[in-house]
Design a protein around this nucleic acid. Structure first.
Lengths: 273, 273
DNA sequence: CGACTTCTTGAATTAGGTCAATCCCTGTGG
DNA sequence: CCACAGGGATTGACCTAATTCAAGAAGTCG
């Protein structure tokens, strides 16, 4: 994919593997008319010429459920901005076992950590029909050289990623299945709330198996714990639709993420060493 | 700690909590004479004036075993470069449980992820007598504005951190205690090898409890698995001194970290979704 | 409508956790 | 120099939470 193909025809030239429907970026859907335009502002382009953003968005694409966005070892070509839908990213061990490292929803960026290594470090797959903007990595990088604010934003995003990963570790570490799942649901709820979706009622785009993998528990355990929550009237589920009836109690069960915020008042816990 | 105190007297003005012995950075031990000078080069200062590095290193300090470097919520004042010794960093949950998120050895940087939030996100404590350079965060940041290479290096370091964290997740996820510990030992071995220490014989500066916490298993399980490894002649231990007698077999048990590198040849494992 | 996938529940099994006792260094003070 | 204290490390016994295996229900898609 080179510059000359930006406005070229449709996707005949696409590699077979990625049969996502793509549109050239020069169509009527310029960034400033995009519904999630303001979600791209964290990219640090708010002050720049509005065509600047257009100039690095190579194309918009739609991935269907199960389609691959990228995999490890692949050359770092695009940064993905999720317009709608959701994506899971995961690492694969040699023996075939995998660890899901994150679920990504609309408004989030994907692939930034491939930046220095020049190739993706994990595999990413659409969980449902997902629309993305594909930002040309090379031009993005050029731009970053010129616009310090852009690099700064990347630092912020990556730093946030680190904190998020470390919270997941805390979750994976020494928590019971119940605590893990409660924490997971509360975390999701907060993410949705911050995007002005309902924090109490939403759609789980990932399977029970994915949730279990993410949390380090068996799929069956996820079902059983959800069943227990249901029995206790904490939640209501209908397949992948879920309603949280008692976030307070769920939060209390999880009570993890308060850690950083209340560290000062917390009494000394971690012995002398 | 303000500019005027760079060359001020000794540490009478130190907060009690941090009784580490400090030296002003204007002493004879300028950066260019420092034994780990080249380890600071990743900071992107190799081309710059050699006094540039000196100018942002506020002071060198020594922390004794168990002493605190920083904790969450504390203002982001310094980036720490470990000259010798080792440090653990960990998150604390509200209920007192903690999750160790990393062990850091000589030549590694600490605290960079606090950069955007302006405050540390985890707690860091010396595992043994540890000598560090404390780099003034504010001046470092100023400098980064001027020297793009510096910001770029930070991106690389943070990106590496993300990959490392995600590998730990893979380890924490669905691995048996044996696999976790084998992976841990092999990982340590590689880190030492990359620093020209013996990859087969080294000192574990962290306690069994810390290892267990890091890997999400009980201290007793660490002992039991180590005992099993010992019985199988895989390792020899004497308190915290350890020799790996059969790295090949240990690696085979762990076989995790090959994941990213061999993903291309690996057969499709992660179902359609 | 059938083939599939995902979800759910039950029963049996086990890895790893918890509790508790002991051992073994290391450092300290008489 | 030796005894003692204290913090790891180790080992054993028991127990529980979660896994595995298996079978069936409930959606979903071509």
């Amino acid at each position: 994919m080179n510059v000359s193909s930006i406005c070229a025809g449709r996707d005949q030239s696409e590699p077979l593997q990625r049969r996502a429907k793509t549109q050239p970026s020069c169509d009527a859907l310029a960034c400033r008319y995009c519904g999630i335009y303001k979600l791209c502002l964290p990219l640090g382009l708010e002050r720049a010429d509005s065509t600047l953003l257009d100039s690095i968005v190579r194309r918009k694409a739609v991935f269907k459920r199960g389609q691959l966005l990228f995999r490890p070892g692949q050359r770092f070509e695009y940064v993905y901005a999720i317009r709608s839908g959701s994506v899971k990213s995961y690492l694969c061990a040699e023996d075939g076992r995998t660890q899901i490292t994150g679920f990504h929803i609309a408004g989030e960026l994907l692939g930034l950590s491939a930046f220095p290594a020049r190739e993706y470090s994990c595999e990413a797959r659409a969980l449902e029909t997902t629309s993305v903007c594909m930002v040309d990595a090379a031009r993005f990088e050029e731009l970053a050289q010129e616009v310090p604010a852009l690099q700064y934003q990347m630092l912020i995003i990556m730093s946030r990623q680190i904190c998020q990963d470390e919270e997941l570790m805390l979750l994976l570490g020494k928590r019971s299945a119940e605590e893990k799942l409660a924490g997971y649901l509360v975390g999701l709820s907060r993410r949705y709330a911050s995007r002005n979706y309902s924090p109490t009622e939403f759609h789980l785009s990932m399977s029970r198996g994915d949730i279990g993998n993410y949390l380090g528990i068996a799929e069956e355990t996820v079902c059983r714990v959800l069943a227990r929550f249901r029995k206790d009237k904490l939640i209501t589920t209908q397949r992948r639709h879920i309603r949280l009836n008692d976030i307070k109690r769920l939060s209390a069960m999880a009570d993890i993420f308060a850690g950083a915020r209340t560290a000062q008042v917390r009494k000394a816990v971690a012995g002398p060493v």
